[in-house]
Amino acid sequence: MKANKYKILSLFLAVLLSWSCQEIIDLDLTQSDPKLVIEGKLTNERIIQKIKISESINYYDTSGLAPFTEAEVSLLDSNFNLLKSFNYNPEDSNYQSNTPFGLGVGQNYILQIEAKEEVLEAKGIVLENATLDSLYYLSAEELQALGQPVFGEGYFMFVNGNLNNEGIEYFKLDVSVNDTLRNSRSDFSNSILTSEFFGKEFQALPVPGSFEEGDTVDLELYTLNEDLYQYYVEFINLLFNDGGVFSPPPVNPDTNIKNLTNPENEPLGFIQFSSIQKRSIIIEKED
């Protein structure tokens, strides 16, 4: 629902921008000390699991984020028993598990990181994923024939299924087309989903975006804990913050990683504990 405000603003600003102009300006910005940036997506899929740790840089710095290589990363169960250690791999600048493994659905986990003499910790539960019964697509012409408004051309994808947990559920849906993740700012915004206004069953739920004939579309649906959903919402708010009078004052998204040593010094980023579900479909011309 919040996305509707962006739609209204985008539409309005699109009209306004026909009178406006944009230019790059030079501003002297204060540079703060580098902050730890942590990004991890741990899933129930049996793979080499990875955690990325780096440090923030000067805003205008065009180089990539420098990896932080001197951390100790451990995965614990809810009783603080060590399950896995992660080691730094300089080849891809990630911390990774030595062997493939997957998280258990319904299990609680703790990811602990020791860095810069501080102990950081993120907790989460791996929730059961939604059931996706069917995935199908319709052309713009077919949708129009059904009396549905259509924006754009090509094919549009829909999914039927049901949710499997009590209460509101949260998801991240990554859409890749021909092995390329759709990850523009809008794609990212559309990838965060909540069941807040949905029932337990859904029919013809649209997959964001449109597709072309011959596209191979891969969907990856991740379950999210509520705190991570909130993180993503705040992240998107910041991503769309244009610094104008319609935007709130910019604030960093509230991470789900706590600093146990120095609570005021929380890192940037998140640790995601998810179950994952994958689907793939090729858009074929209908006879």
């Binding site: 923030s56 991503l239 610094g243 009078v245």
Partner: peptide, 23 residues
């Protein structure tokens, strides 16, 4: 000019470049 908050750094998450602010 209006009183506003400017960033003090930058980082990348999920492939998205985003500014960092002193909260």
């Amino acid at each position: 000019g209006a009183a506003v908050t400017f960033p003090q750094g930058r980082y990348t998450i999920n492939g998205q470049n985003i500014a960092y602010y002193d909260d």
